[in-house]
Design a protein around this nucleic acid. Sequence first.
RNA 1: GCGCCCGUAGCUCAGUCGGAUAGAGCAUCGGCCUUCUAAGCCGAGGGUCGCAGGUUCGAUUCCUGCCGGGCGCGCCA
Length: 589
Amino acid sequence: MNALKQELEQLLSEALARLTGTLLPTAVDAKNIVIERTRDPANGDFATNIAMRLAKGAGLKPVDLAKAILDVLPASPHVVKCEVAGAGFINFYLAGDAQAQVVRQVHELGDAFGRNGSGGNKKVLVEFVSSNPTGPLHVGHGRHGAFGMSVSNLLVANGYQVQREYYINDAGRQMDILAVSIWLRYLEACGERFAFPANGYKGEYIRDIAANLLQKVDATYQRPEGELFGNLPADEPEGGDKDEYIDALVLRARALIGDDAFREILDLGLAAILGDIEQDLGEFGVHYDRWYSERSLAENGAIDRALQRLAKHDHVYEKDGALWFRATNFGDDKDRVVVRENGVKTYFASDIAYHLEKRERGFDILLDILGSDHHGYVARVRAALEAMGEPGESLEACLVQFVTLFRGGEKAQMSTRSGEFITLRELRGEVGNDACRFFYVMRGNDQHLDFDLELAKSRTNDNPVYYIQYAHARVSSVLRQLASKGHDYDGTLGLASLAQLTSVHETAVLTALAKYPEVITLAGANRAPHTLVHYLRDLANSFHTYYNAEQFIVEDAALRNARLALVLAVQQVVRNGLALLGVSAPETM
RNA sequence: GCGCCCGUAGCUCAGUCGGAUAGAGCAUCGGCCUUCUAAGCCGAGGGUCGCAGGUUCGAUUCCUGCCGGGCGCGCCA
């Protein structure tokens, strides 16, 4: 919170207290006492609409009430003028040197400027990406990674205790299909020839894993294709059902090579793909505190415990041989199966157990970053939490909309090289990590994202990443020039001379700097990194404008150092903001 | 059919608790480099905030109903 804003709210509430019992019938609720920044500097620096809010209850015209409030408003050295304007606004004009104090604050706090305790030290578990480990990450996952990481950083900056987690879907049918896909490619590498199943994983990376398997076990797991395909249902190209076919193939594979060998292949594939995902995200600056295995939930009995907890309160029932959770009692559309007729627990059962386990670890907020196509999950997981006696509000979801890649004006979802979906790695290679991280969080998460590859790559003035980074580099450049002109930056003199920063451009920069802590609070509270992106653009704009309008390195030592103190503060704030977004702040460009 | 999200300038999008003349970028047009990086700055044009009601001092913002777009509604994950 801005200190000046706080002071104004204090002054205002004192004035209102003085009127209580005379003009105002009752004491004014503190939450109605709001000071806002003005949009137009012509209306002062801050304003309040309090008179308009209270006029009706007081039986007065807003303008008259505003005047009455002004009459009893305590004086402050930081306020040079207050006036009634418009329909009854009260506008405050700040003293210049009061505004300049933000520069001192930035220099004192450095990297910590903007950090605050608004999160109240609450424990948050941010779960994001959690892509099925059946293949490399594509561009949609990249948005989740960038968004989840930036939100986590913002929460930390706002005084939350944050843990980041990747939930590994390493159990269930998809894993079996992965294993069988690898095995089939391995058989091909052994020289067998057959049609690859329609529902198998067909990516090139499966062949790479199969090649590793071959190198490791030689032909140990080779079986003739006659044994393999005899007596199976038809695959889709032959008019059959691809799901039935692949499930039968999984059973056949297990029968032929044994469960242990099948598991070995599965684990080999899982490790390879997960390793690739971890490396990819790591290079992208996306790091986790924990990689949480779905399989471990079954193995350590967490799923059974969760189901028992539901059963204990009579929130499950049997129907058609399956076990159902009575989700409709907790606001969901329909009841949900947790144990199938065949005795296998559903993915949803794991999900319940996982979220319960998060609560048991003491997290106040379970923040799930989900694809917008998963929005249906929120209600049912929340229902399950409530059924288990946990607060439903503890589960919070950010739904991230899809990414569409464009190259110029054309959609470009497919890689021209591989013919498959463009991977995150390809995208990073083409446009660079900085532009990727920036573009991914440039829009609100509930907005579809059009990602223009040409724009992200362009090194011209229409690329917003460079625009902000350039502001940072320019300050470094000014310091280099300063040295080459035989000057040193004198911080003590600069901070003592801040009162000289009175031009319109300097005032605009000061105002922008003062907003930063408010932006961090807001962006954190709303889980909205794009708010910070827009702010940094504005800050950079005010700086570039100032740069073009005035010379910083002037003869007058006091003025020179005051200006340098100001632009160094800009550099610090740009660096702080970009760090939260995971974007580098270069010294030169 | 039901549920969630979106609809704001030619395009892509901001817009906080309802507030003053609705803002950026791109694109278009016109200016600014012998002075700290022109990856920059300044200016101009461009709007029925999807439509229609309601709530009130005041609605892009809140409520209702439509229209248009995306997604989801499985004993898949």
